[in-house]
Computed example of a mutant assay.
Amino acid sequence: MSKQETIQCAVFGASGYSGVELAWLLHNHPVFSLTYAFSSSAREKAEPISVLYPQLAGRCEQLLQPWHSDLLPQLAQQVRVVFLALPHEASAELAPQLIAAGLVVFDLSGAFRLGDPKTHLSAYGFQQPKLAKKVPYGLAEFTQFSGDEPLIAVPGCYPTAAGLALRPLMPLLAPHSTPIVNAVSGVSGAGRKAALNTSFCEVSLQAYGVATHRHQPEMAQSIGRDVVFVPHLGNFKRGILATIYAELAEGVNEHTIADALEATYANHPLVRLVATPPKLQQVVGTPYCDIYFKVHGSQLILSVAIDNLLKGAAAQALQLANQYYGLTSATGLQPSPGAVV
């Protein structure tokens, strides 16, 4: 790809929280260009995205328009890359159509994350579409592309935090032990649609989806081992703070763990190894994942912080697109153009 070449992109679901963050990142990107932004709802008319998000007034006046299937030929002629920030079943229906039209798709939903169709059916409640090629699971720091993949599954927010912390350390854990992941997310993780149980006036710190959350099998798939996962909803807008407990193999110490993390992330600028337990405020509005660890006897304690809408969604999708097209992974993400929501 020449340095002058611009890659035209479209975002589906740009009216939602992750979608608008992605649209904003693409709007500021030096190589990717946002050509189309489609709403995830049946809006009656096209209007500037700043009508829905007034904070973008004067900064991004991209037209947010409804999607109609008869637009597909025009879309296929004008863009190369499509990002789907849609509900799971909507992505499952649309992605094969986009692939058939020759487009490269980065899907932020859970429609294609799980490799086992039975596990997917149990987690999401619908049949996973069968595609001609295996869909890569795009935990960005652990993903390499051949450049001809038609569809990439962008990981979920909780599994991103857990996977980045645990994957470098799996050989150091006690055999057959089960890591425990406790994580708290802000209310933006539930999406933009109004709901009583995610209203700031109703939300208290509370566990939910205990032993039933669909991100549990995704975490297990990512690290290659079962996990106990308990998500919590916090009374704040955005960010995830995860505390992870794991039993260490005999002879593993702090130096072994530090060496493994440093060796894994030395050339990955969006993962930061920090000396004190991270605060949400140091990652919210950024594309970073901050990881801290402590050893207590034979137990490993990890503290991980990400922005659920950026490193847990939009920024990781863009990071994967950068890698797919041979750009440095942090292109358009360092320095960050800032968050919208």
Rank of each mutant, 00 (worst) to 15 (best):
M1P: 08
K3D: 12
E5Q: 15
T6Y: 07
Q8I: 05
F12P: 02
F12G: 04
L25T: 01
F32Y: 14
L34W: 08
S40W: 11
L56K: 03
Q62K: 14
Q65D: 07
Q65V: 08
A76L: 05
Q78T: 14
A90N: 09
S91Q: 00
A92I: 01
E93M: 10
L94R: 00
G102A: 07
L103S: 00
D107H: 05
L114D: 03
H120Q: 09
Y124H: 15
L139V: 14
E141Q: 14
F142M: 14
S146F: 13
P155W: 02
C157Q: 13
P159S: 12
A162C: 01
P168L: 09
L169N: 06
P171W: 10
L172T: 05
P175H: 08
H176T: 13
V184Q: 02
S185G: 15
G189T: 04
G189L: 15
S199I: 04
F200Q: 11
C201V: 13
A207I: 03
H213A: 09
E218A: 04
M219L: 10
G224V: 03
G224W: 10
G224K: 08
R225I: 04
R225F: 09
P231C: 06
R238S: 15
T243A: 08
A246W: 00
E247H: 12
L248V: 06
E250R: 11
T256G: 04
D259W: 09
P269Y: 09
L273I: 12
P277A: 13
P277N: 06
K279V: 03
Q281F: 08
T286I: 09
C289G: 06
Y292T: 00
F293V: 05
K294A: 12
S298A: 14
L300T: 01
I306Y: 03
K311F: 06
K311P: 09
A313L: 03
A314R: 06
Q323F: 02
